[in-house]
Amino acid sequence: MKKLRDYSPLAKFILMLSVIASAYLTDSLYILFSLIVLQGFAASREGAWRTYGKTMLALTVGALTLTLFQIFSIDEGTTVFTLIPSLGIGSVTDLGIHDSLMMSVRMMASVGVIPLMVALTPSPQIISLVSGTFGLSPSYTCVLITALRFIPTFGERMGKVMQAEACRGYRADTANPFRKIGMILRLSLPLLVTCVRDVDSLTLSLEARGFDPESKTKPERIKPQSIEYVALVIALLAVASLAAGRLIG
């Protein structure tokens, strides 16, 4: 069966949107969990398990934090237990548990699908899709996406620049967080400028190795096959039924 990563980028995008939409259209924890399971299944089939696993781990931490904050602020429903009974602080209700859990799982299900899809889509495809859909010039989109991709390098470079400037007396080694932020901002602009300059030679490197943004916006060799249409139809039907369920019920 055709791999997900080989689907046309538009199909992938629609699938991604469907997952996100479903996450917000449903109130059922079961459906939310199954969305996550579905993603995990796809990730392992596509060999993107490591990326997905890391993302989900990070999201779980975020979700737990979110849950903890939410759980104490919902007062409706029957109290299940209280943290400090004598002071009446920290009461947790059954509704509280359900709602905060749902918010967190919803967050995980909707956010987790994004890096998964990005991992399964080579950047030239993203570029073609974005420039085609939004009518932006492919070169501009290329610059944008390449710059975004370089955020990890940007951070690393920032570190090197701060070191170099420290050697010239720039007091980057300050514990004061405001000063630190101010410093980072001051250095960011020239850094961004050099990154953008780099983008020019990077584009050259990309193009020399076969990526030509000036050509057709559809990436070659990805002709949608029937399986993609089937998947899209199923996804859209699922979203539609969830939406309908909400409207009716």
Binding site: L202, L204, E207, A208, G210
Partner: peptide
């Protein structure tokens, strides 16, 4: 250069301005 690049490899001196992947 895209066409020439199909059979020609260009290696510059500054790797940082050439590496595109993670």
């Amino acid at each position: 250069h895209a066409t020439i690049g199909a059979f020609t490899a260009s290696i510059f001196d500054d790797p940082d301005s050439q590496i595109v992947s993670l």
